[in-house]
Write a protein that binds this DNA or RNA. Sequence first.
DNA 1: TAATAATGTGAATCCAGATTCATTTTATAA
DNA 2: TTATAAAATGAATCTGGATTCACATTATTA
Lengths: 220, 220
Amino acid sequence: MAYRDTEKTRSKREEIRTRILQATHELVVSGGFRNTTIQAVSEQAGIATGTVYKHFPSKAELFSEVFRRATQKEVDKVAQAIVGQENVLLRLQRAIRCFAHRAIQSRGLAWALIAEPVDPVVDADRLEFRQAYAALFSDLIREGIAKQEIPLQSASVTSAAIVGSLAEALVGPLAPPPPTLQTNDRTLPSQQTEDALIDNIIRFCLQAVTGCAFIEDQHK
Amino acid sequence: MAYRDTEKTRSKREEIRTRILQATHELVVSGGFRNTTIQAVSEQAGIATGTVYKHFPSKAELFSEVFRRATQKEVDKVAQAIVGQENVLLRLQRAIRCFAHRAIQSRGLAWALIAEPVDPVVDADRLEFRQAYAALFSDLIREGIAKQEIPLQSASVTSAAIVGSLAEALVGPLAPPPPTLQTNDRTLPSQQTEDALIDNIIRFCLQAVTGCAFIEDQHK
DNA sequence: TAATAATGTGAATCCAGATTCATTTTATAA
DNA sequence: TTATAAAATGAATCTGGATTCACATTATTA
């Protein structure tokens, strides 16, 4: 008889699946979720529209997976920047710098992950995404409070506020390029260089947390 | 011959137009933009669907006007809270309290104005909305710097960060009730009372701006 | 090679709501 | 009244993109 799953079979299936995810990711990075149609995805991946549905039950599910993958990578990076034996403030600073740097490097992605209007399924993922960051920060803040490195405060409010300031200061000022990728002539607000912007954000957040800010100069 | 614009005519037209705006506003407050269909609007207003289009060129335009009206009211309130001869920090505190209080009072509206995924036309309005707040704050901060009441800093970054923290701390933790208004059992994070939450946010922002925070007790 | 069963294809279908428009109602001026 | 035109009506159309499905390809085992 015929056709049991074999290595070749599985690997090819995986490969197509991956190609769909990659194609979607690329389109999202350059044009956001809104402009990413199944037709465009299949074109980009070099397959037929129907094939997409042999690998993903719906557009929402596909988007959700793309979102979660991209998101997880970002959260991991920040989590990585946070670990260490140094004092809490330094680690907080490193985490914020990491977040900011990456957001600036890849604005299209940052916008899609943080600010772009998306459908409810993906929006639910985004909630988790922000909560993941907030959790990272609030753990760190609790640790800092316990070690008496920072004053007593509501870790949950502080961490939410930090996430909010990062999002707004980094993605808000950006001209949200939703429908057509418009002429991206408007660069950062008032010619701030990336480092200056990041330093400002760090000062804001550290001061908010402690009442004072010593910015370590450890760019990149 | 016949039918030149008269008082009665005009006032009736106005009245219907207003009724459409009100109906839309009510639906948005209770269910967000996404769930607000033209059909629902016309039902709520007690008119036919076609009539809506006699008063507004498209759904997007109608939504845009509703958004801008609601938004302007909020911005005005905050602007009002900001004026005065007192020191800058006190006025900043008052403005933040005003924003926060109103957002908490009317969560549905706050969510629709600040966080709900909306179509591009309305999203453009939202950008202006946030910029209006940011402009309010950044003027105040520049004033404070000039008067040496607060340290030198980037007013634009600080104000964007303030707007971001407010939005995230007030609307983010909220269970975004997008598709169906789900059982809103999850109240504020960890049973914080409104005042406690607001005080936390104010401390965060004032400290971020100055390095210290004296919270005036002038609730409401 | 033949039989079997996934997988790939892409044109045709579906769908939810926005939008239209032929018809009816309401108001105005003579 | 009557002729005229704006406004209201809501069933019928339109639309853009997701989703389906009958058919073609490609692997797999015997």
